[in-house]
Design a protein around this nucleic acid. Structure first.
Lengths: 70, 70
DNA sequence: ATAAAATATCAAGTATATATTACATAAAGA
DNA sequence: TCTTTATGTAATATATACTTGATATTTTAT
């Protein structure tokens, strides 16, 4: 499934996929694939992305509605 | 680095590494390695673990103090 | 309308998460 | 003591995250 939260957070910071990729040490393609929901990033990469965008894991990678707590 | 939060959450539920592993569809060794901090799990596995233990990504996998926001 | 920048996507290669099998240790109970 | 359960760890195998390099399309600016 697409990760729109990531795309939005990147837009808030006004940085390109390429720029974010450089900041977290991966390639532009990897960021593109994550936003497109075409794969399953590692935890460390998710954390690096969150830090680069001033967000937390829950902000960018947690689907509230897929959680049955309430 | 060790993931004590995961070990504690598992203890709260009183389930073994093996039991948690079965619930999330991996092997006991994989859970053991994550708790021991010996590798970098995938996002989907982290999410599955969180759901099995009634926690969120931030609860189990986010290090508050490694975040420079404040 | 054209150029530049950003994104999408693809094929082939490398690195690493995860599985499988196995052995070892410690704790708990019979 | 002997057995069972939980855990740690290691070797080899496989699946897949991620890279590299390339082309194509879309968006934005001039």
């Amino acid at each position: 499934m697409k990760n729109l939260k990531l795309k939005v957070a990147r837009a808030e910071y006004d940085i390109s996929q390429d720029e974010l990729a450089k900041r977290v040490g991966v390639t532009r393609q990897t960021i593109g694939m994550i936003e497109a929901g075409k794969f399953n990033p590692s935890l460390q990469l998710c954390i690096a992305i969150c830090k680069a965008l001033g967000k937390t894991l829950n902000d960018l990678f947690w689907e509230e509605n897929s959680n049955e707590k309430i």
